[in-house]
């Protein structure tokens, strides 16, 4: 008897449900012409910026060049800062460098982002890629990745040599200041690497490989995507617990 009652009890709601749903489905179809398909939440809480190829400055490079354009990146960083659903940002670098001002602009945007940021240097993060890599809260370099540190170069017309020199010197100072402020490398060591002779074929400077970058204090850790995601999740948790503390 009990079993019968239980079976009956469990059967009746099943039979009733389709009856209740049927008219509402029909209504929806008549009203809107289609039913609402349940949407899975597609928003990822971690966004990823890839900085590839050459960092483009004020002159647009020909379309066959792979470029990172600041006019694309900067609005994206603004959107990431504003979107409350995004909790962290992963920056992946494989760049040969490029325009100093555009690179510094991207670095400053990443450095001033209020959300946790982790950078991962894969392949190469040369020249102006260095300040971008160190601008994040935590930086990781792949063991085989390299970063070239060299003085600022200017190709193009040089009119007024002392003034141009002064201008370049100040520009270089900005890069050095940014890197020393955002990483553990000292100004002396960074300048020493920058002006070292005999390492690069046609230039002065140093090519710093994975582990060396960590030893110099430029980058925080040697690792890959797994280490980067782990660190980013850690930073997100720390930030969350800080926010909860503030509410209480």
């Amino acid at each position: 008897m009990n079993n019968d009652v239980k079976q009956n009890g469990s059967e009746t709601p099943e039979q009733e449900l389709p009856k209740e749903q049927a008219p509402s489905l029909v209504e929806k179809i008549q009203q809107l012409g289609q039913t609402n398909v349940p949407q899975l939440s597609q928003d990822s809480k971690i966004h990823c910026l890839t900085i590839v190829g050459q960092i483009e400055g004020h002159i647009q490079l020909p379309p066959q060049n792979k470029t990172t354009k600041y006019e694309h990146l900067i609005p994206q960083i603004v959107a990431i800062e504003q979107n409350p659903k995004i909790e962290g940002l992963l920056v992946i670098l494989n760049t040969v460098g490029g325009d100093v001002e555009a690179g510094l602009a991207i670095s400053e945007m990443l450095g001033s982002l209020s959300k946790p940021t982790v950078s991962l240097v894969l392949g190469g993060g040369h020249s102006i890629g260095v300040p971008i890599a160190v601008s994040c809260n935590y930086s990781i370099i792949a063991e085989t990745a390299t970063m070239t540190i060299h003085p600022i170069r200017l190709t193009g017309l040089v009119i007024g040599v002392p003034q141009t020199f002064e201008y370049l010197d100040k520009m270089q100072e900005r890069v050095i200041n940014f890197v020393t402020q955002h990483s553990n490398i000292t100004e002396e060591l960074f300048k020493e690497l920058m002006f070292a002779k005999g390492n690069l074929t046609r230039d002065i400077g140093t090519n710093v490989i994975g582990r060396d970058a960590v030893e110099y204090g430029l980058i925080d850790e040697v690792g890959g995507i797994g280490a980067a995601m782990k660190k980013l999740n850690e930073l997100i948790d720390i930030k969350k617990s800080e926010n909860e503390g503030l509410v209480q």
Partner: peptide, 18 residues
């Protein structure tokens, strides 16, 4: 010392493709 893209300028129509 001129950059290559200034010496050999790309045809403007190339830019419009993208």
């Amino acid at each position: 010392t001129m950059p290559q893209e200034l010496v050999f300028q790309t045809d403007p129509s190339e830019y419009e493709k993208q």
